[in-house]
């Protein structure tokens, strides 16, 4: 069985005909060529496929695409559009040298969300495979913190949670990083939260 659905992906409206069994992740990666969301486990156990879906961070591997007809999807590639407070830029000494010759799309024209810049500033990545999911998740986590939503480590449920490393760690625990870049990820989220 196939269906035609419409999606807004990183600001671009698309319509595709899909098998109703197609997950949102496979629709993005295999049908639309949006490979920023990654397939790490395909069963909701790693977080690599995280995007911002209709305003919230969301796993795309456990979602049938057909159930999200009309949804707005923001991947790490288009994440900068969600940034209310873009960063001024990296400190000079750690500035990334120009690297247009590397394989893959030249990213020079693609703006970064301040969370992404913070990941670069704190080396919050190694192999980079979980990273698109991490940065989307971090944007979601900061929004949830700003909205005063508690987490498992919030001791006082009646108040607003404070920004602490423990809060960041808990809120980022749905995104596994096998390279173990957690220290850098926490530092990056802390920096992004502060700006």
């Amino acid at each position: 069985m196939t269906r035609t659905i419409g999606l807004d992906v990183d600001g671009e409206a698309v319509r595709i005909e899909i098998d109703v069994r197609t997950t949102l992740l496979d629709a993005l990666r295999e049908r639309l060529g949006h490979t920023a969301p990654k397939k790490g486990c395909d069963h909701g156990q790693c977080g690599s496929c995280t995007v911002i879906l209709d305003g919230r961070r969301h796993l795309t591997c456990l979602s049938l695409a057909v159930a999200h007809d009309g949804a707005t999807v923001t991947t790490s590639r288009g994440l900068a559009a969600l940034d209310e407070a873009p960063d001024a830029g990296p400190p000079a000494d750690t500035a990334e040298p120009s690297s247009p010759s590397l394989p893959g799309a030249d990213p020079a024209d693609l703006p970064l969300h301040r969370v992404q810049q913070a990941f670069l500033d704190h080396d919050g990545l190694q192999c980079g495979y979980c990273t698109p999911g991490q940065v989307c998740s971090a944007v979601g986590a900061l929004a949830e913190l700003a909205a005063g939503q508690p987490s498992h480590v919030t001791d006082d449920l009646s108040g607003r949670p404070e920004l602490s490393d423990a809060e960041i760690r808990e809120r980022m625990s749905g995104n596994l990083c096998r390279c173990g870049a957690y220290a850098g990820i926490v530092a990056a989220v802390r920096q992004a939260a502060g700006s």
Binding site: G44, G47, T50, R56, R57, H58, L59, L62, S63, S137, G140, A141, E144, P150, S151, H152, T154, L157, S158, R171, S173, G174, N175
Partner: peptide
Amino acid sequence: VRERYPVLARALLAGASPQIRHQ
């Protein structure tokens, strides 16, 4: 829920991950 049923909020927050809880 947080005020009257903390056990419920705590149980939900102890489950899965933030992404899955949104879903």
